[in-house]
Design a protein around this nucleic acid. Structure first.
Lengths: 116, 116
DNA sequence: CCTGATCGATACGGTAGCGTAACGACATGG
DNA sequence: CCATGTCGTTACGCTACCGTATCGATCAGG
């Protein structure tokens, strides 16, 4: 089911969620990092560095760096693919799922609070 | 009118918009910068460095730097307040309005395309 | 005046991102 | 085997951000 938004609602939603995210989230993820994280959790696995780079239109080191940072924070983990040891499979974590769950709640709450 | 979203829709919306933004937007604004930009354009003026810092829960240099960067890109402009010359009034620009208009269109389009 | 408060900007050292280019590890086809 | 190609990672130089501390300019009150 589509979600119909007016221009004011669309930007208002982005505004309140972005502001809340800046105020409350100590992780301070980049837009790129967040896009990568959402890709990993919302698209069926397996995910690889190369695949994510292609999907987002960025270079491979961008993905490696983002996985380094988010891995240190426990949001994702990496495992070597044993069937083709050149590949690295990116795996989800409980902490990452919880993080996105909270982001989802934030979006839903702000969407519900939208006026006009 | 509130916008009712399921968790899947909320994160899906964020996902597709973030991905498109990463792929298409050459400016690569920080989440903080985007929040500042939205604050300037969606909340009635006047806007000051101090006011934005308080609203977003960040320090003043963060605002100064963001205004430097976005000012170079023509998204905002700064004018000294002649009534109290300590203040700087942040003003909107045509280019900034166009930028957010495109972002709004992107959100609306992705919201409309949402399934389930 | 002049003292104190407040404005935005700046300096500083540190961290983390960027793109380009190269790397070692691994797989594959001849 | 060995040459070639494909993984992800790392190295490099650079830029931009961060927070803390401080700055000069400006205002307000005595």
């Amino acid at each position: 089911m589509p979600v119909e938004l007016t221009p004011s609602q669309a930007l208002g939603l982005w505004h309140t969620v972005s502001r809340a995210q800046v105020r409350l989230d100590g992780r301070d993820l980049t837009l790129r990092q967040l896009a990568i994280l959402l890709e990993i959790y919302l698209v069926p696995p397996p995910h690889t560095v190369r695949g994510l780079a292609a999907k987002l239109g960025v270079t491979k080191p961008v993905i490696t760096r983002a996985l380094d940072t988010m891995g240190e924070q426990g949001l994702v983990s990496r495992v070597r693919d044993e069937r083709d040891r050149r590949n690295v499979v990116i795996r989800r974590t409980v902490e990452g799922a919880l993080y996105l769950e909270k982001l989802g709640d934030l979006i839903i709450g702000q969407g519900r609070a939208l006026a006009s």
